[in-house]
Amino acid sequence: MKMKLKLKVNGAELEAFIEPHTTLQDLLREDLDFTGTKEGCSSGMCGACTVLVDGKAVKSCLIIALQCQGKEITTIEGLARGEQLHPLQTSFIEHGAIQCGFCTPGMVLTAKSWLDENPNPSEEDVRLGISGNLCRCTGYVKIVDAIMATVAKNK
């Protein structure tokens, strides 16, 4: 039986009627067409499904959408202001931190959430912060470089 869910996604108030077992991932990807959030493993291990709920990075494949009643969701599509990219997005591009791009949305959002709470991390801190996001293309080097560069810029 469908149930009502009211939440904010990328700044817009939304109302959805969903089956209670709908995950936040499926709500975003299938019902709302925010396909920037990816499905990599459906078991909470790869981090490609990461979005922000009330500013905190979480794995949307492990969250029942109804738990987001009244909450504010930010997906990768909501990070830029129109064509004005977020500093992390710009840094990822400039440092060559994006290859196939599948892990990128989750990686960027995790980094944003981590930096919001740790504005002055060491490189090891950053690596720990993104340890829940798998990347098979880059070896993580340029991803860490991009995040550290953003930290330096923010200072």
Binding site: G44, G47, T50, V53, K56, A57, V58, K59, L62, I63, T110, S113, W114, L128, G129, I130, S131, G132, N133
Partner: peptide, 9 residues
């Protein structure tokens, strides 16, 4: 413990 995202929720 686990990852940042798991600890958040």
């Amino acid at each position: 413990l686990a990852s940042f995202q798991v600890r958040n929720w």
